[in-house]
Computed example of a mutant assay.
Amino acid sequence: MKDLQFKRHRRLRSSANMRALVRETHLHVDDFIYPIFVVEGENIKKEVPSMPGVDQISLDHLKAEMDEVVSLGIKSVLLFGVPVEKDEVGTQAFHDHGIVQEATRFIKEHYPEIIIVADTCLCEYTDHGHCGVIEGGKILNDPSLDLLAKTAVSQAQAGADIIAPSNMMDGFVAVIRKGLDEAGFEDVPIMSYAVKYASAFYGPFRDAAGSAPQFGDRKTYQMDPANRLEALREAHSDVEEGADFLIVKPTLSYLDIVRDVRNEFNLPVVGYNVSGEYSMVKGAALNGWIDEKTIVLEMLTSMKRAGCDLIITYFAKDAARWLAE
């Protein structure tokens, strides 16, 4: 053996402190954006059946939720609204007293330092569950853009720090940027769902947000999961139109796309650790098949390693506790 020449890689794995010393990727609570589902009504705290540990909450429960978020050191939340009334154009999405707008005002009044990211879409608010205007069974692109811009401006007026349009209509960043600028919100950034696939991993979210399409699917506006180069075309368009962040959604099965986007652009890259990814881990953990803490931290670390600067995740509270340990 003395005459053999080979590398001693294990020298840098010899102890926990040695491994920590040379660790290349680090998770931090500041990396997390925590999604919250706010519903209209009173005294509502209802666990989403397909997402153990995730609740739909009414405004009167929002303070308790935010107290926990703040106590864990989480600095950013993503707000989704679940209205009582829905119509064909999603009027409650851009209503001055819509549920996201009211939740935003409440959080800004009581927790002014928290960064509020407002999901800007119509699917939770339309009676057909699609992300735009419908005519003859077709989702119309350009008429939908006007409504999305109205929604973004309404959310910014309520105090949202970041607008996050998730609809995947062509030109949505350009129209929303123009609408925000004309309304005096030049300094409000856009966190674009730049690369959003028509994924089966969204199923539990549609339970949480009540946003399942009532007919057809979203494959005419969300991306084909088989496509890679298309992701860069989509992201390039959004950068040219004024995006400030680029989201890749989902993340776990699309880490190659995260790395492509990270290598191509110098904007912050955001991974969305979506509901299906969450529910699979939770379900396996509840059955005792996996070690949830170890799996989750490994999964989130893989997203950071692939190139995510930020991670939207339903595991944010759990991960914050584990990291604090």
Results as ranks from 00 to 15, higher is better:
residue 82 V to Y: 03
residue 283 G to C: 12
residue 47 E to G: 01
residue 104 T to K: 01
residue 255 L to N: 04
residue 60 D to K: 08
residue 3 D to W: 12
residue 173 V to E: 08
residue 140 L to I: 15
residue 105 R to V: 04
residue 184 G to M: 10
residue 297 L to T: 13
residue 71 S to E: 13
residue 173 V to P: 09
residue 71 S to F: 10
residue 69 V to H: 05
residue 253 S to Q: 06
residue 242 G to D: 00
residue 49 P to Y: 13
residue 205 F to A: 08
residue 214 Q to P: 02
residue 282 K to E: 10
residue 39 V to P: 01
residue 3 D to P: 11
residue 112 P to G: 02
residue 211 S to Y: 01
residue 72 L to G: 07
residue 33 I to C: 01
residue 121 C to I: 01
residue 199 S to M: 04
residue 31 D to Q: 04
residue 222 Q to I: 03
residue 24 E to W: 08
residue 213 P to F: 04
residue 269 V to T: 03
residue 192 S to W: 09
residue 172 F to C: 15
residue 176 I to C: 13
residue 276 G to F: 06
residue 293 K to I: 12
residue 149 A to S: 15
residue 252 L to T: 09
residue 133 V to W: 05
residue 244 D to T: 00
residue 149 A to M: 10
residue 27 L to E: 02
residue 133 V to L: 13
residue 79 L to H: 02
residue 260 D to F: 02
residue 34 Y to R: 01
residue 165 P to H: 11
residue 190 I to V: 08
residue 148 L to M: 15
residue 180 L to R: 05
residue 68 E to R: 11
residue 207 D to G: 06
residue 228 R to Q: 12
residue 27 L to G: 00
residue 13 R to D: 07
residue 239 V to W: 03
residue 150 K to D: 11
residue 89 V to N: 11
residue 140 L to A: 14
residue 11 R to V: 07
residue 173 V to R: 03
residue 111 Y to M: 03
residue 122 L to Y: 02
residue 231 A to W: 05
residue 218 R to I: 03
residue 217 D to S: 02
residue 60 D to Q: 07
residue 239 V to A: 06
residue 267 L to C: 08
residue 257 I to H: 01
residue 41 G to N: 05
residue 23 R to W: 06
residue 45 K to A: 12
residue 315 F to C: 12
residue 62 L to H: 07
residue 296 V to Y: 12
residue 65 E to N: 12
residue 175 V to G: 12
residue 41 G to H: 02
residue 270 V to Y: 04
residue 150 K to E: 15
residue 68 E to T: 14
residue 108 K to V: 00
residue 169 M to W: 07
residue 81 G to L: 02
residue 29 V to W: 06
residue 247 I to L: 11
residue 296 V to C: 13
residue 14 S to W: 08
residue 246 L to F: 07
residue 8 R to S: 10
residue 83 P to H: 10
residue 15 S to E: 05
residue 262 R to I: 07
residue 168 M to W: 11
residue 272 Y to K: 00
residue 211 S to D: 03
residue 260 D to R: 08
residue 214 Q to E: 12
residue 19 R to I: 07
residue 87 D to Y: 09
residue 203 G to L: 10
residue 294 T to E: 15
residue 197 Y to V: 00
residue 193 Y to K: 05
residue 3 D to R: 14
residue 204 P to G: 00
residue 162 I to K: 01
residue 191 M to K: 05
residue 297 L to E: 10
residue 42 E to L: 04
residue 151 T to M: 03
residue 111 Y to G: 06
residue 44 I to S: 09
residue 201 F to N: 12
residue 119 D to Y: 04
residue 199 S to L: 09
residue 267 L to A: 03
residue 106 F to M: 08
residue 37 F to D: 02
residue 45 K to Y: 01
residue 225 P to F: 00
residue 144 S to N: 10
residue 303 M to Q: 15
residue 95 H to F: 07
residue 233 R to Q: 09
residue 125 Y to C: 02
